[in-house]
């Protein structure tokens, strides 16, 4: 395929992906916004005032970047995992597999779909948060870069999950048993400096911690961890997962008989 044809194939996939989550917006866009608004009400206004300061900020200011990041993570992941798995389940993934569209365009298309939903939900949640607190972004470049990279990373993870999944249960197991614990324990709600030393060490094995903290650094200018290290780590994960996804597509694992 010529570069121009590949571009058309890519935009077709992206358009289709965006159209999918917009069509079912009641399932895709509304729930995360309601959940996050509840978090803002409960943590921010009801009990936040009793918590006092966290990392040198009032609790609401501290928790908002974490919650934005959490919604980006879950929505990027779940968009790709449900879209790709249902394309597999209904067999319409075959429309792409029989076409001349190269594998990297297929992957890129689905990742862009995940990023689109992740960022869109992240943006809506940000707007909602403005009803509760003020956001003064300290480092815009870092903020945008880490949110984008995180979204890409979790879209890729959703893709791997979808390729391996054989049932709708399989696409909720990882989010429930891996993703949710990692996010809740990834410094969304607290600074790890509150933890005993041992648990601080354990927390540092959690990749989500680095993304949440890099994002919080971008917004508030404070972080529990080294920012360059966070970026490098996320970049390495993205490269490794991309290579792995392309390998899965090439061998046709669970996609071709």
């Amino acid at each position: 395929m010529s570069p121009q044809e590949q571009w058309i194939a890519l935009t077709t996939i992206i358009r289709k992906e965006i159209h999918r989550f917009m069509r079912i917006w009641v399932q895709t866009l509304v729930p995360p916004v309601i959940t996050m608004a509840l978090y803002f009400v409960i943590f921010g206004t009801l009990i936040g005032s009793r918590i006092g300061e966290m990392g040198g900020f009032n609790y609401m200011s501290f928790v908002v970047p974490g919650l934005i990041m959490m919604s980006v993570i879950t929505n990027s992941y779940s968009n790709v995992v449900s879209s790709f798995y249902s394309a597999k389940f209904q067999h319409n993934i075959e429309e792409l597999l029989v076409s001349p569209t190269p594998n990297y365009i297929i992957l890129l298309g689905f990742i862009c779909g995940g990023v689109a939903r992740g960022l869109m939900v992240g943006l809506i949640v940000t707007v909602v948060s403005l009803l509760f607190t003020k956001l003064h972004i300290q480092h815009l470049g870092i903020t945008v870069a880490i949110v984008l990279m995180t979204s890409i990373l979790f879209s890729l993870m959703g893709f791997v999950n979808a390729v391996y999944a054989n049932s709708f249960d399989d696409i909720s197991i990882i989010p429930t048993f891996v993703l949710t614990p990692l996010t809740y324990l990834g410094g969304v709600f607290y600074s790890i400096s509150l933890l005993p030393e041992f648990w601080q060490g354990v927390s540092q094995l959690n990749p989500v911690l680095y993304m949440v903290n890099a994002f919080r650094y971008g917004v508030l200018g404070v972080s529990d961890i080294n920012i360059s290290f966070a970026f490098a780590g996320v970049a390495v994960f993205i490269v490794a997962l991309t290579v792995y996804c392309l390998h899965l597509l090439k061998t046709g694992k669970r996609l071709r008989a």
Partner: peptide, 26 residues
């Protein structure tokens, strides 16, 4: 193919137009 393999939720015309896109048609 022998078995139906399109998305059940998409509209007829969208399915056909998208397929053309996967072949690089404007």
């Amino acid at each position: 193919p022998q078995e139906f393999n399109f998305s059940q939720f998409e509209q007829v015309r969208t399915i056909v137009v998208n397929q053309a896109g996967y072949y690089g048609l404007k």
